[in-house]
């Protein structure tokens, strides 16, 4: 897919929670390029002395009617804090679309489970929306530390079934996503996961035991995002590969995780 450097204009900056912000951006000149669920963008950071590199942020949603792309950002360091300080009308320079997305089910009878943890729910919204367009109802299993960390629940509920776990039990079932009763009750034909690594490893372990195809989205530290610097490598069956170019989505069978 052709990649673009674009100066986008922010149409909205919504604070979802003290640590999370939703950026909506549009291209005022032309339609946004084609993007696939699970792909990401490299966002340029302005005004942070400590931040040198762009920040890789997954594509949260694409609103074709409004010609908008959404980014869900967790404020972790100075760079992401600077993104959270941006305002509607500001210019956001992005490179997109980057990497390879999740495998999309082709068969209407596919039963796809999308598992997200924390800010890792971001790419699943767009994936669910694309599935919905194809007439496939997605099932979301979303985990967080606490009810306040569950993001965009209303948006997920508008697309499909939503199951929730929180570590403190403030919403849904108490515990981790892999402990949710849904996994005992239903079988799926495909599992797509994005979240903290321990969570992805646990889900991968479940998927392997259930003999269900499973893809995970990695977030290794990146510099270029284009496959040039070789910094974000993951050890795989074919050696070290760039997460930015060969991933960020990988079939768990290709990874060397201990599962």
């Amino acid at each position: 897919m052709k990649k673009y450097i674009l100066d986008l204009k922010l149409t909205a900056v919504e604070r979802l929670h003290e640590r999370y912000v939703l950026l909506k951006a549009t291209d005022c000149q032309k339609p946004l390029p084609e993007m696939q669920p699970g792909q990401f963008a490299q966002l340029q950071i302005e005004g942070s002395k400590q931040t040198f590199l762009r920040r890789p942020i997954s594509i949260h949603y694409v609103d074709r009617k409004q010609n908008e792309v959404w980014f869900l950002v967790q404020t972790v360091g100075d760079g992401t804090r600077q993104l959270a300080r941006m305002q509607a009308g500001d210019t956001l320079n992005v490179i997109l679309p980057l990497g390879n997305g999740f495998t999309m089910p082709s068969d209407a009878s596919a039963r796809v489970l999308q598992v997200g943890g924390g800010v890792g729910v971001a790419p699943l919204l767009y994936m669910g929306a694309v599935m919905r367009e194809k007439g496939i109802e997605p099932t979301f299993l979303l985990g967080a530390r606490s009810a306040g960390d569950l993001l965009q629940l209303d948006k997920f509920r508008a697309l499909g079934r939503v199951f929730v776990t929180t570590e403190d039990g403030s919403m849904g079932e108490k515990g981790f996503v892999t402990q949710h009763s849904l996994l005992q009750q239903e079988k799926f034909t495909q599992i797509s996961v994005c979240g903290p690594k321990p969570m992805m490893v646990a889900v991968a372990r479940y998927a392997k035991s259930a003999d269900t195809p499973c893809e995970v989205s990695l977030e290794n530290m990146m510099a270029c995002g284009l496959g040039a610097c070789l910094c974000c490598v993951e050890d795989t069956e074919t050696g070290n590969v760039c997460v930015c170019k060969e991933g960020p989505v990988f079939d768990i069978k290709k990874l060397k995780w201990q599962i």
Binding site: K49, Q50, T51, F52, L53, N220, M221, M222, A223, C229, L230, C231, C232, V233, E234, D235, G239, N240
Partner: peptide
């Protein structure tokens, strides 16, 4: 194969 991950650290005005 190169060195193991992590291979990169951001610094002030560099890496």
């Amino acid at each position: 194969q190169g060195n193991p991950y992590p291979r990169m650290a951001e610094t002030a005005q560099g890496m």
